[in-house]
């Protein structure tokens, strides 16, 4: 099979989920926005919490049914997870979206804002990994 079949099919499923959410509920499948809506107790919230439950249920089903092993755990230290998480949280709130909101959904509806955001976070992500791996020489 084509070497990148699983990333491609996975991407098609993610896109299908986003289209279905817009079609049925009229909502954008931006995970950061859904999570924020859920924890900040927006009205009519059940669908958000269940979307999050689904985000965990999906991988559980996938790994069990296809007997695919879990990814190898990251060897990075806990404080790097904490720093990454904190920056991601600050960034999605300021920038109003993440990879799914701006990347998958925003680009899908040809939003100039989302295109600028996506190019920006791709660029700083690439720069960050470059600095960590090739300047600082860490993992």
């Amino acid at each position: 099979m084509f070497a990148y079949a699983t990333p491609l099919i996975g991407g098609l499923l993610i896109g299908t989920s986003a289209v279905a959410l817009l079609w049925f509920l009229g909502r954008i499948a931006g995970v950061a926005g859904i999570v924020w809506g859920a924890i900040s107790a927006q009205p009519d919230n059940a669908w958000r919490w269940l979307f999050i439950v689904g985000l965990l249920l999906g991988p559980a089903l996938y790994h069990t049914l296809t007997a695919t092993p879990y990814p190898v755990p990251s060897a990075l230290p806990w404080w790097q997870a904490a720093a990454g998480g904190l920056l991601v949280g600050i960034g999605v709130k300021l920038g109003s979206g993440c990879t799914s909101g701006h990347g998958v959904c925003g680009l899908g509806r040809l939003s100039p804002r989302s295109l600028v955001a996506t190019i920006t976070f791709m660029a700083t992500g690439i720069a960050t990994v470059y600095v960590i791996r090739h300047v600082l020489g860490a993992m």
Binding site: V31, L55, S100, V116, A117, I132
Partner: peptide, 24 residues
Amino acid sequence: LLGGAAIFGIGWGVYGYCPGPALS
């Protein structure tokens, strides 16, 4: 928007997760 997206990208590059994959 630019600052937020830039900070988000840095966090993504620091550990390798964005919100969806982290929850999953």
